[in-house]
Design a protein around this nucleic acid. Structure first.
Lengths: 224, 224
DNA sequence: CCCAAATTTAAACAGGTGTTTGAAATGTAC
DNA sequence: GTACATTTCAAACACCTGTTTAAATTTGGG
């Protein structure tokens, strides 16, 4: 009656790495099952379809990450005065790094998967996350709003998506970037290092002064 | 002797839109040729292979963009004193918008293609651009370096790639973001508007204060 | 031990992919 | 108008995709 955990686990483990490296659409079930050393039909038997396998791979991380983020967000929302932006962003670090307890290199793999999901199968992951975890993310938006009260809502919307893009792209091309950094600056880069480099960049970008045509001081077009 | 321009043009026009919307790998030659109303074999006859078609689609824009950027970069490099970062970044605006003369909606299409190229076929486009236009881009890096002399080279490397990620991801998900912005803020968004919103974000991110463990004022981890 | 449920397996399925082929059609120069 | 090169076309190629099937195997409870 009890399902044999081993095969499902082997599939999930093999799938997540291949998905992270090659993308969802460009990874075939045959690659996955042969890496996992299980029969081709096992994916459809245990998960139903490739689509459901992708969801299972993501859910394994999203479930624990979102629960932890929810805690942190609620904690910060309970504070008397608004938290500063850097504090709000830094709240992601621990929950993300704790994904390493879900699986070896879990943080890196999850972030790469996130990158793949937002770019590969346009819209699906965005919808999925918003549908399942929208309530959690709303808390985050509220926190950022409190820490940047001068920022119009529409400007905040765009800047948060810019930030999502920064993270997601960086993680999707993580390997390439790490290789170049190593070659050009003999700099060993782990996922934690990248996150620490990302935070100041994101915080400054989100809190940047708002462009205004009536303020020539921050005019953006090159002078005529 | 002279090749019939019309078929090649029809293929390029149909291909660029489909590539931008669906990605390179997820767009089939049959979709392209039937949208272009030409025979399936025409792609291989005129371009050799799908890979070469992708390159041709990109090159149509890259050639004119890079030539224009090269001009602008050289102009700024000739200045006596270092240009400020916002001026350096703003230099992209005009050349990008001029891509609309290559093709209707050329700017949007090119930027979406760029997004696809950097995420779909991992590494290929990055290599291609560096190989063909590395000299031009080096000028840009030099300009940024001059405008942010306090920034270590390795930090600059990461932040420029963060910025690339911001742009590329924003453009790849351009349609989705524009739809949401319209729905939530009844805000009509064109490509120029997005670019104008991007610049302050990028400028602030690139010039952000460098994180340092010995400077507790900008400590990033949430307190224990 | 035995039987039924759960799992694994090899094989085939229908459909899609990029590419190649050789004949038909078109265009071009003399 | 004939001869030649260029371009189009339908058909087939070999291969890969996710999924299904039905038989073989393994598993666990009575």
């Amino acid at each position: 009656m009890v399902a044999k955990q081993n095969t499902q686990q082997k599939i999930l483990d093999a799938a997540q790495s291949l998905f992270a490296e090659t993308g969802f659409n460009d990874t075939s079930l045959r690659q996955i099952t042969s890496a996992a050393e299980v029969n081709l039909a096992a994916v459809n038997y245990h998960f139903g379809s490739k689509k459901e396998l992708i969801q299972a791979v993501l859910q394994r991380y999203l479930r624990v990450l979102m629960a932890r983020l929810d805690q942190e967000f609620s904690r910060l929302l309970a504070a008397q005065q608004p938290n500063n932006l850097t504090q709000v962003l830094a709240v992601f670090v621990k929950p993300l790094l704790e994904l390493n307890s879900v699986h070896h290199n879990g943080t890196r793999i999850f972030l790469q998967l996130l990158g793949r999901g937002y770019t590969d199968v346009q819209g699906h992951l965005r919808w999925f996350i918003n549908h399942h975890y929208g309530r959690v993310l709303d808390k985050f938006v509220l926190l950022v709003q409190q820490s940047c009260p001068q920022l119009p809502a529409s400007e905040l919307f765009w800047r948060l998506h810019f930030s999502l893009g920064t993270v997601v792209f960086t993680m999707a091309s993580n390997e390439a970037l790490a290789e170049i950094a190593q070659a050009d600056f003999s700099e060993e880069v782990d996922i934690e290092g990248v996150i620490q480099r990302l935070l100041p960049y994101l915080a400054a970008g989100i809190a940047a002064p708002v462009y205004s045509r009536s303020n020539p001081q921050q005019q953006l077009r090159s002078g005529t």
